[in-house]
């Protein structure tokens, strides 16, 4: 067992974990943050995407011990002071989700992307989401959701 300290959604957690424990399982099973989903075992689907030290990463391909000393934001911590993140708003406004399973990872990826590229083209959005599978929406409304969020952020509608 190894001891780790991880700051998750602003709160520090110290836990004893097996080194083989994945960060995704740590978040879900130890911290009960079940908004991070697991959809595959090959680092492909992106459902488990979280932010770690300011970067969108796939928590199913990271060990919990690797996150020792890191700051993690999950979907549960994306809203600030009760205010949804513009990407979260965008997904609701534009029907960017159906079953909701890929959604949390999709939102975390998109939020990171807009941090880097606040004024993206449609093609850039599509390319940026290449690491997230959605089987429900055909991506059409996901792209619109991200566009909505980009507009909202640039126009200062939100934040």
């Amino acid at each position: 067992m190894a001891q780790i300290t991880v700051k998750v959604n602003g709160k520090e957690h110290t836990s004893e974990v097996e080194p083989r424990l994945l960060l995704s399982h740590y978040l879900r099973d130890v911290l009960n943050l079940t908004g991070t989903h697991i959809g595959c075992d090959t680092s492909s689907c992106g459902s488990c995407t979280i932010h770690m030290d300011g970067m969108a990463v796939k928590s199913c391909s990271i060990l919990a011990v690797q996150a020792d000393g890191s700051e993690v934001t999950t979907i549960e911590g994306l809203a600030t002071n009760g205010q949804l993140h513009p990407v979260q708003e965008g997904f609701k406004e534009c029907h960017g989700l159906q079953c909701g399973f890929c959604t949390t990872g999709m939102i975390m990826s998109a939020a990171d992307f807009l941090n880097q590229n606040p004024d993206p083209t449609e093609a850039e959005i599509r390319h940026a989401l290449e690491g997230n599978f959605c089987r429900c929406t055909g991506y059409h409304n996901i792209v619109r959701s991200v566009q909505w969020a980009a507009n909202a952020m640039s126009e200062g509608v939100i934040e």
């Binding site: 080194p19 075992d41 199913c60 391909s61 990271i62 060990l63």
Partner: peptide
Amino acid sequence: LAGGHSLIPALKLRLSAPAKLVD
């Protein structure tokens, strides 16, 4: 172990069984 995005999926699929990972 560096980025781990090839190694960890392989470990999960039990295709490899190292006694220790050196990160």
